[in-house]
């Protein structure tokens, strides 16, 4: 049995009568890449919002590295080592790329000195290939560059687990290949990654494990190959997409 870094036990979130996330029990094993897939509206982003404390649980428990984290404020959770990227990138537009990443290093990364935070931020910008744009305002970066900035910001938080919410959406061929290489190298460095992804070729090439959400419920969970052969998954997610593609073609 692999050690789980993050454990969700019976996690639910209801908005009025809508069960956005319903009784999800899931273990994210340490040091692996887990894909979180499912149709639009399945509750994937809501689950990430729950893990990061942005919204509160209606029921259930969340454990991270053996400590209970549900009910903690978002800034506390991020300081524990849970970093996320947003589906819609959220940079600080009036700050430069370097200032953006340095702020993350300073607070969640817990680097007290501002100059050390900037040095650390530079190394993270280099890691994502954005170093030459360090003095550019975040608002002037292209979408692809902003996504990489989001990456650098998350890395500067020195996380143990990285939650990537559609970090590849909107990237073109070359950028996509670079992003995949980057994610893989992060995993090789021992970072645990939970990735929400719609592009099946990314899922197939990256993920060790898969968890499938459908109407807020976890319908499958396990090693990637096994899950992709699962009858329920094909019916609920892969099949629909496959059929759509067939019709479009």
């Amino acid at each position: 049995m692999m050690t789980a870094i993050l454990e969700l036990r019976g996690v639910s979130r209801h908005f009025g009568g809508l069960r956005a996330v319903n009784d999800v029990t899931l273990s994210v094993p340490q040091g692996r890449i887990m894909g979180l897939i499912g149709p639009n509206g399945a509750g994937k982003t809501t689950l990430v919002n729950l893990i990061t404390g942005m919204i509160k649980l209606s029921a259930g428990e969340m454990w991270f590295k053996g400590a209970r984290i549900d009910g903690l404020a978002p800034h506390r959770i991020s300081r524990l080592g849970i970093a996320r990227t947003f589906q819609i990138v959220q940079p600080f537009p009036e700050m430069t790329a370097l200032e953006n990443v340095a702020a993350a290093a300073m607070f969640a990364g817990n680097i007290a000195s501002q100059s050390e935070a900037r040095d650390f931020a530079e190394s993270q910008l280099e890691r994502v290939g954005l170093l030459e744009l360090r003095s550019t305002l975040a608002s002037r970066l292209s979408l692809g560059q902003r996504k990489r900035l989001e990456f650098a910001k998350s890395l500067a938080m020195k996380p143990s687990i990285l939650l990537l919410d559609e970090v590849n959406a909107g990237l073109h061929g070359g950028e996509l290949a670079e992003a995949i290489t980057l994610i893989r190298s992060l995993a090789q460095d021992g970072l645990t990654i939970l990735i929400i992804e719609h592009l099946m070729k990314v899922v197939v090439s990256l993920c060790d494990d898969l968890a499938v959400l459908h109407h807020g419920e976890l319908i499958a969970n396990g090693p990637a190959q096994q899950v992709m052969g699962d009858e329920h998954v094909i019916k609920a997610y892969l099949g629909e997409r496959y059929l759509k593609r067939q019709r479009a073609g």
């Binding site: 404020a73 300081r79 959220q90 300073m106 607070f107 817990n110």
Partner: peptide, 25 residues
């Protein structure tokens, strides 16, 4: 100071500020 950085982050995007470990409140 760090506090000044936190202030500017909150002004630009309070949610993102919380996400990078800033105690916005």
């Amino acid at each position: 100071s760090r506090l000044g950085v936190a202030f500017r982050c909150i002004r630009q995007n309070e949610e993102a500020a919380n996400m990078i470990g800033i105690d916005a409140t």
